[in-house]
């Protein structure tokens, strides 16, 4: 074992703080709201989401942006709880793709 990829307080090598904020995209606002809604409905707990982010591949954790990590952790927990399957999500995405493919 070693310290987790999320447990970064005090690690050397961090650069300057970038104070600029980016306006949230629609998908980020949606991800935020779905996460809160699932919590409000008692479907999952914040601690489970954090654990899912800790269990991610470390390179993926570093490379994803903030709400990408949220989406990935929501997917992991919803699959773990047998609420969704990866196939269902993939299939839904394929439906979107076929709509986009229409002239």
């Amino acid at each position: 074992m070693a310290r987790g990829h999320h447990d970064i307080g005090g690690l050397p090598g961090a650069g300057a703080i970038e104070a600029a904020d980016h306006p949230l995209s629609d998908w980020e606002i949606l991800a935020d709201a779905i996460n809160q809604a699932l919590g409000a409905r008692g479907v999952k707990r914040t601690d489970e989401m954090r654990r899912a982010r800790e269990e991610m591949d470390s390179a993926a954790y570093r490379d994803m942006n903030y709400y990408e990590r949220w989406v990935a952790s929501m997917e992991a927990i919803l699959i773990e709880k047998n609420i969704l399957t990866k196939d269902e999500i993939d299939q839904k995405l394929a439906e979107f793709e076929s709509k986009w493919g229409e002239p």
Binding site: W27, E28, L30, A31, I34, E75, I89
Partner: peptide
């Protein structure tokens, strides 16, 4: 992006 698309799919399924 990949995960941005997935949240829309998850929304519809949920």
């Amino acid at each position: 992006s990949y995960y941005a698309k997935r949240i829309y799919a998850m929304r519809d399924l949920l």
